[in-house]
Amino acid sequence: MRLHELPDDVFVLGAHAPDWRSAVRIAGDALVAGGVTTDAYAERMVQVVEEFGAYIVIAPGLALAHARPGPDVLHDGLAVVTLDEPVVFGHPHNDPVEVVLALAVTSNEGHVTVLAELANVFNDPMATTAIAQATTVEAVRAVLGRAQPEA
């Protein structure tokens, strides 16, 4: 999985979510649309937040929803959702959330490349806002394409 190769199906732009659970479920639906997971995975991502709190809001405006590998993960994948109105997840510093990424992996190993790419993109503090304001999938891909794959 590489960021610039993500299929159109996993992008949802300008979605409306009344609360954080809805935002995570929209991202889960995008994973299902992309053939990455089955329906059950979205609820497991919600449960991670219910159990451990809003730590998935890892930077201002940006949530990385995820759950452990499981039979509901068909292959490694990532979904990208932007919200029409920011949503509060309950993080002490990084709320409200404008961009929800949803990560699904089949094992605890082997997804280092995509995470290093995400780090390359979001080390730029403007990246979240640039994605939130994008109106086309191509514009989001352009931001994600700033990742320079590590040799």
């Binding site: 159990e51 730590y55 995820h66 990560l103 280092v112 995470l115 995400l118 780090a119």
Partner: peptide
């Protein structure tokens, strides 16, 4: 450290190494 051991902790690891 993270709740699920994938994703967020792996990003934290990458950036801490940097």
């Amino acid at each position: 450290f993270c709740g699920a051991g994938i994703g967020t902790s792996a990003i934290l690891k990458v950036n801490a190494e940097r």
